[in-house]
Amino acid sequence: MSEYSLKNTLSYRFLRQSAKDWKDFLVTFGNIGKDFNRVIKYILRLEIDANKLIEQSSRFAFDSLPITLTIVSMTAIIISMQISPELVKQGGGNFIGMMSAIVMTRELSAIMSGFAIISMIGSSFASELASMSVTDQISAMKVLRVDPVKYLIVPRVTAGFIMMPFVVILSSFVGLFFAGLVANITAGVSALNFTTSMWQGLFIKDIMVMLLKSAFFGGAIALISCSCGYSTRGGAKDVGISTTKAVVWSFLAIAFLDWIFAILFYM
């Protein structure tokens, strides 16, 4: 009787749930680490199927492009809309291009593209692999002695690593274009003024770091999404849970990576 009532207390249930969450966390972390290990071995040996890499690359970059460009452009438009009139009022109209360039290259275009890619590509990687797993397609592949990590995950992660910098550089350009356009419309900043100032804000270092960072973002999103999908067991409900998990973990991972890059290169 006493045991029964103990198990019903709020603190017991809270501790129990926390323990379970911790275990889930560690298991997911372990799975991602294990899959990373296997993927990196294939990549270092350059055992990457060219056809599958091309297929996944085009999916990663082109399928997501409309959404990525929209999100990054909207962010650029809104920021420019808010600060351009203010800066012009304070006599800082000549800095709008520079500020936009710094903000875009150092932070916004990579992270915003990352968010867009997670929602478009990460979630589809995760749900795709999860549904393959719960319908025994992954088991079937193993029995046929084809390594699903090599066949499914390696091309996706490589594609993410390679294509993400292209996505980000493109979205930076488009974002800056819209920032300039909006600065012109809302604050009368001329195109020449904006571009001259913008060039002063584009540093080689920032661009290099942005490209490197986005490669890691792309690789991490693909790896985490694939890993969460791949380790799914159960049924349709578990496919949903894994997809959510992939999205959440990818968000956290790029936020964390962003912070690491900021420390490494800007402190």
Binding site: M132, T135, D136, Q137, S139, A140, M141, V143, L144, R145, V146, Y151
Partner: peptide
């Protein structure tokens, strides 16, 4: 070889690609 309770065919490949899968990919 093992056949599965619910077929477990690769749904992104057609019948030809499914059957030839081990011969092409192994």
């Amino acid at each position: 070889a093992m056949t599965f309770q619910y077929s477990a065919l690769f749904d992104f490949l057609n019948v030809f690609e499914n059957i030839s899968f081990p011969l092409v990919e192994r």
